[in-house]
Simulated scan of single mutants.
Amino acid sequence: MAAMFIGEHTFKVDGKGRVSIPADFRRELEEGDPTASQTGRARMVIVYGADTQKQLIVHTYDGYRQLAADIAALPRGSERRKVMERMILKRARPTEVDADGRLVLPQLLRDKIGLDGTAYFAGLGETFEIWKPDVHEARETAITDKFIAQHGEDFDPLSLLDDEGV
């Protein structure tokens, strides 16, 4: 079964880059790593992507392995495969939950998204994202404002599930 990361959380980041992982996210990470029950530490993969990407995308261990298999299934030498290998496989960092339920974000990753004292976690179903809170808020506002301007304030996001959705 695919992971189910939902909700939003904000946590402090200490000087060593340690940040608590939301408890419900930790459970999903454990479910997505077959060795977590033996080791007591769930593995995950953080994709930091293109230089223009303003967030870190966190996958369960099994979810990332499936994504890597999907990329490997693309035709060798194809432009799509080359781009995905460079943006998703090359720019990934495996890590694990520490004994205190935290994630240690290396300086490279904190610098990439400008993370300083606080991290914003956004659950997106199969993955979750880590943002600098004000960057996330600005991005979210811009997307929401644009969508409402196009579709009106009465827009129901559930309509996107319909075949005739917006």
Rank of each mutant, 00 (worst) to 15 (best):
L108Y: 10
L158Q: 07
D14E: 10
G114L: 14
D14W: 04
E85I: 13
M1S: 12
A23K: 14
E28C: 03
D145V: 00
V83W: 06
D162E: 10
F25Q: 08
R93I: 02
P94W: 08
T141R: 01
A2R: 03
W131R: 11
P106I: 14
P75E: 08
R18H: 02
A73Y: 00
G152A: 00
D156V: 00
E96Q: 13
L103C: 13
I88A: 03
D14C: 10
D98C: 09
L108P: 06
F128K: 08
R65V: 00
R81T: 04
A142S: 05
E153I: 00
V47I: 11
E126I: 10
A72N: 03
I130E: 06
R86N: 04
I113Y: 06
D24R: 05
Q66K: 03
D116T: 15
F11V: 05
Q53G: 02
Q53E: 09
L124E: 11
T127D: 08
K132P: 09
S159W: 06
R26H: 06
M4E: 13
R27L: 11
I130C: 03
D134L: 07
R41V: 08
P22V: 02
A69S: 14
E126L: 13
L74V: 06
R110C: 09
G152V: 00
F25N: 08
A36L: 10
A50H: 08
E126S: 13
Y48Q: 09
G32W: 14
R110T: 11
L74P: 02
E153V: 00
G32Y: 10
M87R: 09
L105P: 09
G117A: 13
P94G: 07
F5L: 10
A42Y: 02
R18D: 03
V58E: 05
A36T: 02
S78W: 15
I130Q: 10
F25D: 06
I6D: 07
F147N: 01
D145L: 04
E30G: 08
A42V: 08
I143M: 02
G49V: 00
T39V: 12
R80T: 10
T127E: 06
P22S: 01
E164G: 05
E28I: 05
T52E: 15
E126V: 02
H59W: 15
Q150M: 10
Q53W: 08
R65D: 13
L108S: 14
L109R: 04
